[in-house]
Design a protein around this nucleic acid. Structure first.
Lengths: 108, 108
DNA sequence: ATCGTTTATCGGCGATAGACGATGAACGAG
DNA sequence: CTCGTTCATCGTCTATCGCCGATAAACGAT
C-alpha cells in the first residue's frame, strides 16, 4: 500500500465517500471494464466496446463513471482515448472496505 | 482470511455477484448501519432508526438490502428484530474486491 | 476536401432506488 | 382486554440508473 491514506488505516473515510467509490464498482459492466483495462495495453474506448457487447455510448458512460469516481485515469490521445486503471485509487478503495470489515469483525 | 473462497485468490467471483455485493455496500446509510450493528449489541431496527435520522420504513428497507445481499443475518426475537453483521460474508466481499484490485495492479 | 473512425454527449425511455407515510401484525405490559 | 411499542410491508412519489440511437467534434488517411 504505497498510496498515502488520508485516514489512518484503522480509521475511516466517511461513509459518503466510501459509498461513492463502491457505487462506481457496483456494476458488472464496470468491473468487467476494469479487468479489461488492467489486462490490456491499448485501453481505448473502442476496444472495450468490442469486448463488452454494449453500445458505444453506454460504454463511454460507464467509463465516465469510473473516471468521475477517480478509479480510472483519462487521457485524450489523438482521436483515441486512453483509459487506464488508477491502481493506487483502487487499492485505496479496497483498503477502505477492508478497514470497515476489520472494524466490524473486531467489534464482536 | 478464514472464509474459504470458492474461487482461488487470484481468480474471481463473476462480476455479477461481486457487483451485487458491492451494490449493497454502496450507500452511506447502509455503511453507517453496518458500523452501528457491529458496534452495538442490541441490533434492533429501532435503535438503528434512532441513530440514523431516517424513517423507520426506510431503515427497514436498508436492512433488508443488507440481509438480501447476505451481509447481515436476521433473526426475529419477540417483537424485536435482531440484526447482526455476517463477518464472514463481509470478509468475503472484501477479499473479492482485494482480489480484483490485486489482479488489476499486478497486470501492469 | 472528403471520407471513415473514434469518441463524448444529448435526448429519450423503461426500470429501479430511495425516501416517506400509513397500515396491520406481533407482542409485552398494564 | 387494551394500549403502547416494534417491525415489515404496501403504495406512492421523485430522482437516478442503465441502455440505446443519433449527432457532432476531432482526427488520420486518401
Amino acid at each position: 500500500m504505497n498510496a498515502p491514506l488520508t485516514e489512518k488505516t484503522c480509521g475511516f473515510a466517511d461513509s459518503q465517500s466510501v459509498a461513492a467509490k463502491l457505487a462506481a464498482l457496483s456494476h458488472p459492466a464496470r468491473i468487467e471494464i476494469l479487468r479489461h483495462l488492467s489486462a490490456s495495453r491499448s485501453c481505448c474506448c473502442r476496444e472495450v466496446v468490442d469486448h463488452l457487447d454494449l453500445a458505444q455510448s453506454t460504454v463511454s458512460q460507464h467509463l465516465r463513471v469510473l473516471v468521475d469516481a477517480g478509479l480510472v485515469r483519462y487521457k485524450p490521445d489523438r482521436q483515441r482515448s486512453r483509459y487506464e486503471v488508477d491502481s493506487d485509487a483502487l487499492a485505496n478503495v479496497s483498503a477502505s472496505l477492508a478497514a470497515l470489515v476489520t472494524s466490524c469483525c473486531s467489534g464482536r
